[in-house]
Design a protein around this nucleic acid. Structure first.
Lengths: 366, 366
DNA sequence: AATTTTTCTGCACACGTGTGCAGGCGGTTT
DNA sequence: AAACCGCCTGCACACGTGTGCAGAAAAATT
């Protein structure tokens, strides 16, 4: 025989199964003495209630679906860690679903999540978050998008995101204050909202500093090291190389550093590099990476807590914004003093915009 | 109203709900014309079967529980990626459970997994894998341990593991062939089977090369960079420093590299470093890390495929062993020629044991 | 035309848990 | 003594899906 059910306990305790059910749920309807007796029998028999049977009647699975493109990305892994932590504390389970950015897989994932009747869904950094929404609207489960807002605000779509524009501008101002004028941007593939916003911050900072925007200084990677390497290789082939690079994320920066190394140049002496995310290796690699720290675990927690709030019937903000934090380490330094004539066009000092909002700055050794 | 059920479809199609059930499962018992009609109505109504109701009757949830200490470890993340991939291909879902090596959390995790009535369980690199076994024996769900064999072989406990001893010996022979004699070992906390076995390989290789084992050259980290750093710092404080270090995993190696750097020494000129795992950053950091490659994704797949084989009623090997692969990169080189008298004790050449089994070697730029 | 066979459909019940409701029992009040 | 009340317990049913079995209708056989 397999699992012990409340009926088995009922038989052992000489009562009916509803009484067992009530006793185990501490219902005041059942005599406290018998309730205690039943509970003792239950633990003796090693009883564990069946979540599936319970879900069938309560219509709540205490399960949330987490959709990611890949769990191998350290940023995503950290976020998922935060989600899982907050979920488990409240007795919720996390079912994981990789989409791999493959449309077929994505569809299967959506169906799987639908059939499992999850109570809520969290989607992390996918450009296709919007795709899930219509299909899952029928599930009536709230959806929280992390770093990827939904265009038309359905009434059950929420989001947790970092203030990309401000953070990105802060990173750029750091480079500008160091004296850089030829600053490149290595982005992700087009379509990601995070990329669009970080790029917007890049342009804003340039404009504020009176630096002309040069399209040739923008290259696209894929959010992974190899993409960053290829993008950086292109930038290094320019007639006038950039003196600094701002990367979409740390993984891209990792690749960029490699390309710079292959080109025989040094960081930060020849080129400064700034990343985004502050994944764990940013504080262990060499040189230590200057980057924007995202509160990754906390963002995961916030997403989960948003869901919990909704489950509890409370009102939850539809869009939570957290702030990034510039962490200055070893990969940035003032440019070498051999400015070209073309760069003198910058009329204003970098700190001209000190009154604008910007992310906090941390000077860290690690 | 919430979800559409087969009863809703039955009403719309003017049939009974069992007929709908059979039609959707392509049972030959139902007329092909009406079956087709019912199926069309089902898709029109956006029907998705309830996995929870189905599970209640079939007694199979098509769900597997994956227990990890932390998803933030890149080795574990890759393994989980492999598990998830193989699972989804066969329509299985993965519920993730962090234990954080916290006993309380571990117990909650076990209960949660039990209550969800998962069909199988995969535990990755936890020293407490053994703890789950008795509690879950009642679930009768097969358990696959990754890199952590179970002592007493219950009839439903399986394992997928790398041949730690051979791989570790291969790594050591690489260092010995380069001419190193003072080789340190940075392990994990005591109790991990992987650590024990890798350490065994370390000692075997020393013995085969006729090198004396020196206890002071063994230090313990915690599998994370900070632990590796502290361990390495201790080793560097020795009167006679090691000329090479073999680390339990790449994360420890990352910390060791940092300690070496802080000490003003160069890798590999002053000290050679070998890691274990070949996580993604090993091929992107500087210097590129010489390490043992574990087929991480494949190990995840193998674990899942073992479960699938058991579900299908087939016989599955209770213990699958995969082989590591030495990847030689930039962090290892011959030692500087300033051998101490004490080291001359090594009588035999390092290649004395070329006939013994060893892992394949790859010379890779990346 | 009668009988057998085949093809299909619906009834009834099961899975394990939760809950509204009726009713039994003991004790208190009129 | 009758009426009432409160405390507890069990009956019955629900949740959504799957399946054994009976039986009706249609087709094939005698």
């Amino acid at each position: 025989m397999g699992q012990v059910s409340i009926k088995d306990i009922a038989r052992a305790a000489q009562v009916s199964h509803p009484t067992v059910s009530r006793a185990l749920r501490n219902s005041p309807l059942v005599n406290s003495a018998t309730a205690e007796r039943i509970r003792r029998i239950a633990v003796r028999m090693g009883y564990r209630p069946s979540a599936v049977a319970r879900s069938l009647v309560t219509k709540r699975t205490r399960t949330i679906g987490v959709v990611v493109t890949t769990i191998a990305d350290p940023f995503i892994a950290e976020v998922v860690g935060g989600i899982e932590e907050a979920a488990n504390e409240q007795g919720y389970s996390v079912v994981l679903a990789n989409s791999n950015a493959d449309p077929d897989r994505e569809l299967k994932v959506v169906h799987s999540i639908h059939e499992r009747r999850v109570d809520g869904i969290i989607v992390t950094s996918s450009r296709v978050g919007a795709l899930y929404v219509p299909v899952l609207s029928q599930l009536m489960a709230p959806i929280v998008l992390i770093n990827n807002q939904h265009p038309d605000d359905s009434d059950f779509v929420y989001s947790v995101m970092i203030d990309n524009v401000t953070a990105s501008r802060t990173a750029m101002q750091h480079l500008l204050e160091l004296g850089h004028r030829r600053i490149a941007y290595i982005g992700d593939q087009a379509g990601f909202q995070s990329d669009t916003e970080r790029f917007a911050g890049y342009r804003q900072a340039l404009a504020l500093a009176g630096c002309p925007f040069r399209p040739e200084l923008v290259a696209h990677g894929n959010g992974k090291p190899e993409g960053g390497r290829q993008a950086m290789t292109k930038l290094l082939a320019l007639d006038e190389m950039p003196t600094a690079v701002f990367c979409y994320n740390d993984m891209s920066a990792l690749g960029a550093l490699r390309a710079i190394d292959e080109h025989g140049l040094k960081v930060p002496a020849d080129i400064s590099v700034v990343g985004f995310d502050d994944v764990f290796f940013a504080s262990w690699m060499r040189p230590l990476l200057t980057t924007i720290r995202q509160p990754k675990r906390q963002m995961g927690r916030l997403a989960m807590e948003t869901l919990l709030r909704i489950f509890a019937g409370e009102q939850a903000g539809t869009s939570i914004k957290v702030n990034g934090e510039l962490v200055v380490r070893e990969s940035t330094a003032p440019p070498e003093r051999k400015q070209k004539a073309g760069d003198r066009l910058c009329r204003q000092a970098a700190n001209c915009s000190s009154d604008r909002r910007r992310s906090p700055v941390v000077r860290a050794k690690r």
